[in-house]
């Protein structure tokens, strides 16, 4: 009797969960076949098989240039947010001090302020600061990437037993030796995942980039956005599939390395 009821409840769950899984995966999966379709309009079902769109993507100087721009900006934004975020994450994670929670809230706010508000503000101000082109966008992306680095570093630092640092000192290590040999290895994984988040955030960002870039310096999302508003061709699907492949690869490698025995 209980076996049958369990079977029924499992069936019920499957019926409820399956559509959610489909909805979660469908957008990621449906563009893959489209990118190989011969048809120049993105209609389902795909007809025939071709690699033309990929060829077009990888030989287009415009796409290549914007990908290179995106990578440059994302790299710069990641370095910048690490330089700012790691010390902050350590300060927040290792010790208790007055008004710490307020500081935490402040550092997190760029994540939740609508990007449009950030974008027009930066659009109005950055030129005056001399922050234009690559550097302007990198600075802007660092603003929204810093919270990720702070959060992941803080989480890792919190795991660190403070007496460990004192133990290292008692064993004869100088403060900088403690930092290099104890603190840094302990938080390395958190910093790394913060860096990955920061990179992906910048790589993916459209709204601010739309405001801070110009036709001479476009990032990949901006190029894609322009393409989408001009009328879509399957090159975008080929690009989307490529990006999807890259992120899946990234995600699997992160999951594989971060698996901890519990």
């Amino acid at each position: 009797m209980s076996g049958r009821r369990r079977w029924l409840s499992r069936l019920l769950w499957a019926v409820l969960v399956a559509p959610v899984v489909v909805c979660l995966l469908a957008p990621s999966l449906v563009i893959i076949p489209m990118s190989f379709s011969r048809s120049p309009v993105l209609s389902f079902p795909p007809s025939g098989f071709t690699l033309d769109w990929y060829q077009r993507l990888f030989t287009s100087s415009e796409w290549i240039a914007s990908a290179r721009n995106s990578a440059t900006v994302a790299f710069a934004a990641t370095v910048l947010s690490l330089l700012l975020g790691v010390p902050a994450g350590l300060a927040l994670g290792l010790r208790d001090w007055r008004s710490k929670r307020l500081m935490m809230a402040f550092v997190i706010t760029p994540m939740v302020i609508p990007t449009v508000v950030l974008a027009i503000g930066m659009y109005a101000v950055y030129a005056r600061l001399g922050l234009v082109g690559m550097w302007g966008l990198a600075a802007a992306h660092a603003v929204i990437a810093v919270p990720f680095v702070v959060i992941t570093t803080m989480a890792a630092a919190r795991q660190l037993d403070p007496t460990l640092l004192l133990a290292a000192r008692s064993l004869g290590a100088l403060p900088w030796q403690v930092f290099l040999n104890v603190t840094l290895p302990s938080i390395a994984r958190g910093v790394l995942s913060g860096a990955v988040f920061a990179f992906v955030t910048s790589w993916d960002e459209v709204v601010i980039a739309l405001f801070l870039t110009d036709p001479t310096f476009k990032t990949l999302p901006v190029q894609m956005w322009n393409q989408l508003s001009q009328g879509v061709d399957p090159t975008v699907a080929a690009l989307a599939t490529t990006l999807l492949g890259l992120t899946t690869l990234l995600m699997v490698s992160v999951l594989a390395t971060s698996r901890r025995p519990r």
Partner: peptide
């Protein structure tokens, strides 16, 4: 997976 996939790519999809 969606968490990691580009927002633009998902909206386009």
């Amino acid at each position: 997976l969606p968490f990691w996939t580009s927002l633009l790519v998902r909206s386009f999809a």
